[in-house]
Design a protein around this nucleic acid. Sequence first.
DNA 1: CAACCGACCTGTTCGC
DNA 2: TGCGAACAGGTCGGTT
Length: 277
Amino acid sequence: MPELPEVETYRRDMERLVGGRTITRVFVDWPRQVAAPSPAKFKREIAGRKIVSVGRRGKYLIFGLTGGYSMIVHLRMTGRLHLVAPDCPPDRHSHVTWTLDTGMELRFQDPRKFGKVYLVGDPDEIVGRLGPEPFDKKLTAARLVRMVAGKKTALKPLLLNQEFIAGLGNIYVDETLHLSGIHPRRAAGSLSADEARKLLSSIRTVLRKAIRHNGTSFDPFYVDAFGRPGRYQKYLRVYGRHGRECLKCGRTIDRIVVAQRGTHVCHACQPRPRKRG
DNA sequence: CAACCGACCTGTTCGC
DNA sequence: TGCGAACAGGTCGGTT
């Protein structure tokens, strides 16, 4: 679930809650969540270092540590971060826990255990292959046109590809394409310059608003570091709204499968591509 | 190279 | 109500 807006919400929370703190101890009870280096080395190298910055690249959180190290966290599907008091009872889904010099514990909760943590010297070892940030000023409509030129791939999987543009996931891709009036199966290379401009501005509009509302929460799933849900679910126009009316034209929202992902679309606002787009 | 599939995991929802 | 199947916001590696 955590896509760019949710990760950005965590980044802000983390900056405020753990920025400047020193990590005294690391506890790992599901070693596979430590992607690199070995869990033993991970624990040993992190203990005693201070968190000097908290950044984000795509869906990755990057904790800058003293000594030139970066600790990187990817929440994947069900990861959450929580700062809790030392007397907070253990919970069955926290598999990596950092104890801070204040005594507080930062817990990485992740029921599905897909999330990963890394400790590296250079963040680019992990995030170096990512495509541009959606808000990068160098990402212009003209550049987007060049990026899609000649591509036969459908837009949906392309936008989900983090090496194309970083940070979008299933929710925000569906929302973005609906706002753009573009069908998820359109061949990327078939976009007109106008459509590319519209797509880029939609990506930014959707993400900006979602960040402003602290991300999207379904059920009690994603919550920020204070345990608070996001509010963007109130503004979703297609995602999870299949069977209900399109807020723009009234037609019933459809749920289809594109690139093996559940996809929400209004077939009036987002006309089907002819044959190959 | 693009499309597709299974893996990685657990919890929740759906259909019978 | 009970129980197995299907499905879920992400990514990676392997096969057509």
